[in-house]
Design a binder for these strands. Structure first.
Lengths: 156, 156
DNA sequence: CTCCTATTGGTAATGGTTGTCATTAACAAA
DNA sequence: TTTGTTAATGACAACCATTACCAATAGGAG
């Protein structure tokens, strides 16, 4: 885990400051963990990872900061049907770019995909517009997930 | 609530029988509740509704049967981010037909919509095909939800 | 350096959901 | 209709992710 010296990437400080939040060690550690994984981590996963370097950071603090980071849209919370939430850096910060998830219903493996976006963009644009007008919703978000059985689980 | 006399719709018996399940009062009562609502009910909602007519049916039984009904695809389980699951009769049994959900992030009001399906069908077809091949998934399901703020909540 | 107050960490509580187990009831077979 | 097998039930406790509480701590502006 990089940045244990307390100096995180610039954008962290910038974003926190301008939102009126303080830059603290737990926040930095949590973002470090999320920056350095390709996985989709649960609150406890993050807690355990952070715990290795800062054993005194508690699970409660992790939850609190995850909630805050979701609020300022620095990370995104997902539910894949596992009974616990998973977290990812949001598109803008992750380098992964815009993507969606393909989830195995058996082992909960999650594949990020960003293929076939042309069709999606068309679909989203017209659907969002239509729904907004018809139902007078101010639409801010969408969730698109595909579920199925992965190759490994199919062969069991 | 109709069908308190113990004779439910034919299809219930048929479906249960052919799956090797027994037709019981709790199952019938749960399906009755789901057939006679337009809402999206939680396990407890269903328990309370059932409880009015059969006070001795327990919450555990409701959960167990909901799980079973999801397994045989007679109902569908949804998560709208409220911290509890909601249940609906599946398309084939509900009379609502295929639809998706538009969810208010503030009050959790859920709108069923089945408009703008032409674009969706195109999008789904090509995306599912593409994903199946590329990632070797046997895709069985998808989840499409739009989130936003409803008119009422916007005016607060 | 000081002060204000956001943030923290530990623990207890919450709330949805699931496990356990003795009892009951569906329904196939006689 | 009666019987026997076994799925299903109901009450309760356990589980587990998440949240509330509160005294102690530490950012960071001035």
């Amino acid at each position: 885990m990089p940045n244990q010296d307390g100096t995180g990437p610039r954008w962290m400080h910038g974003k926190f400051k301008c939102c009126g939040y303080r830059m603290t060690k737990p926040r930095e550690a949590i973002l470090d963990v999320l920056e350095n994984t390709q996985e989709h981590l649960s609150a406890e996963d993050i807690y355990l990872a952070v715990h290795k370097f800062y054993p005194n950071i508690g699970l409660t603090t992790v939850y609190r900061n995850l909630e805050m980071l979701v609020n300022i849209e620095m990370i995104v919370k997902f539910d894949f049907g596992e009974g616990k939430s998973k977290y990812e850096l949001s598109d803008h910060y992750s380098g992964k770019g815009h993507h969606h998830h393909l989830v195995c219903k058996e082992c909960y493996k999650v594949v990020d995909y960003s293929d076939f976006m042309k069709d999606e963009v068309n679909f989203l644009k017209s659907t969002e517009d239509g729904l907004s007008k018809k139902y007078k919703f101010n639409i801010t978000d969408h969730l698109i997930q595909f579920f199925g059985v992965c190759e490994k689980c199919s062969n069991k």
